[in-house]
Nucleic acid binder design. Structure first.
Lengths: 200, 200
DNA sequence: GTTTACCATTGACTTAGGTTAAGATCGGTG
DNA sequence: CACCGATCTTAACCTAAGTCAATGGTAAAC
C-alpha cells in the first residue's frame, strides 16, 4: 500500500481546523492522496497546464510566479503545513499562467480535480470543506489585494515583516522584491532607508 | 405578502447559472430575501459594521471604498444583476472596513448571514451555490490582484477599458483613479498621453 | 441669471521607483 | 586556493506619479 508511506498527521490537523469528520470519511480521503517529491528548484506545476490538483505541503516551501515579458514575477509563497494550488485555474479548468517552484527539497500530497469533485458529491463534509477552503483562500487574496492598493512598496515591506516574518527570514530578497511589485534595487534602497532612520 | 412586490426574475436567472433547483427550494429561498431601497449617495453598509448580508443588485450600481488617512480609496464597483458584499467580513463576522455607497438610486435584495447558514444546512443545493459563489468571487479578486501586481497604472486603465467598459462609461473619473490606485491628476495625464499618441 | 459646488484639466515642482552598470559578498567547486 | 555564479548593494541618471495651486466647465441651487 503506497499510502502507508504517507505522513498524514499534518494534513489531518489542518483539515480538523475546518470540518468534523469520521474515520471512514478520513480513510477514504487519504486513499486518494498522492505523494510527490520535488527537488529544490523543481516544478510542481508549469505555466500552460491546467492546474489539476490541490497540493498539501508536507515539507519544504514554494513560490508561484508568472512570466511577463521574459521576466519572472513572484505572486506568492507557501510553506509547510498549507495548501497550495492555482485555485482559479483549478476551478475553471483553464490553463494556468503560474509556475509553482520548490525553493527547497519538498514533499506534497496532491488531490486531483476529479477525486475532489467525487468527494464533494459523496460526502457533504467535503463539500463544506471545499467551501470553507475557498473562503479561506479568498480572505487571504483579498488582504493581499488591499495591501497592493493602499500601501506604498515601503509600507508593503513593513507589513510583510509584521504579518509574514517567515517570508522575510527564508525567501531570497529578489523574490521578495518581486512579490512586493518592485525591483531588487528598490528593495535594497527601502531596507537602507529603514536602517538609516532607525539609527538616528 | 411583502415578497409579491419583489422582482425576482434577475436573481433567478443569475442563480440558475450556477445550480439546479426545484420550485420548492426556490420559493423557500425567495421568502428570506429582503428588499431594500437606497437613494443615490446612500449607504448599503458602513465601515465598522459586520457585513451581515449578501446583496443582489436589482437596480442601480455601487462602489465600495475604504477610508485611509481621511481619504476615500475606492476598492470596487458593482452593477445591476450582480451580488455585492464584503465577503471576508461576511464570512469571518469581523467588522468591515468598507463602506458601500449607491452611485444611483438603487434597489437590492439582501440575504442575511443566519438565513444563508440555514440554507446551507437545509439544502445541499445552497451549500453548493455558496461554494460556487465564493469561488466566483475568488476568481474576480485574484484577477484584480494580478492587475495590481503586473501592470502599470496606464496598463491598468487600458485593461479596465477593455474588460469593464461599463465602469469607464458610468463612473466619475476620480473614483476610477482611486480604483486604479492613483490620483485624479495622474489619470488625467494618462488619458492625455493616450489621446496624444493616438493622434499621431 | 447669477452663484455655488463639484469635477476634470493643466502646470510647476518634488520624490520614489525603474534602469543600467559597476562593485561587494558569499558559498560552492574544481 | 582561485574561480565562478548567484545575490545583494551602491551610484548616476531617467521617468512617472504625487503634491500643490490655479483654471475652466458644467450642472444644480438660489
Amino acid at each position: 500500500m503506497e499510502n502507508e508511506e504517507i505522513d498524514v498527521e499534518q494534513i489531518k490537523e489542518y483539515i480538523s481546523r475546518f470540518v468534523c469528520y469520521n474515520d471512514q470519511e478520513l480513510t477514504a480521503f487519504f486513499k486518494i492522496l498522492r505523494k510527490t517529491v520535488i527537488p529544490k528548484g523543481g516544478y510542481l506545476m508549469q505555466a500552460g497546464q491546467v492546474c489539476d490538483h490541490v497540493a498539501f505541503i508536507n515539507k519544504g516551501h514554494f513560490r508561484a510566479f508568472y512570466v511577463i515579458d521574459n521576466k519572472e514575477v513572484t505572486y506568492n509563497f507557501s510553506f509547510q503545513g498549507n495548501f497550495f494550488t492555482d485555485y482559479p485555474s483549478f476551478l475553471t479548468r483553464q490553463p494556468s499562467n503560474e509556475t509553482h517552484q520548490a525553493l527547497e527539497d519538498a514533499e506534497v500530497l496532491t488531490l486531483s480535480y476529479n477525486d475532489m469533485q467525487q468527494c464533494y458529491v459523496n460526502t457533504p463534509a467535503w463539500e463544506r470543506f471545499g467551501r470553507l477552503i475557498g473562503e479561506f483562500i479568498l480572505i487571504g487574496i483579498a488582504e493581499r489585494n488591499r495591501s497592493m492598493l493602499f500601501m506604498s512598496p515601503e509600507e508593503r515591506y513593513l507589513n510583510l515583516m509584521k504579518t509574514r516574518p517567515k517570508v522575510i527570514a527564508t525567501i531570497p530578497q529578489h523574490h521578495i522584491a518581486s512579490y512586493l511589485g518592485i525591483q531588487p534595487e528598490s528593495l535594497s534602497r527601502i531596507r537602507r532607508r529603514l536602517a538609516d532612520s532607525k539609527k538616528k
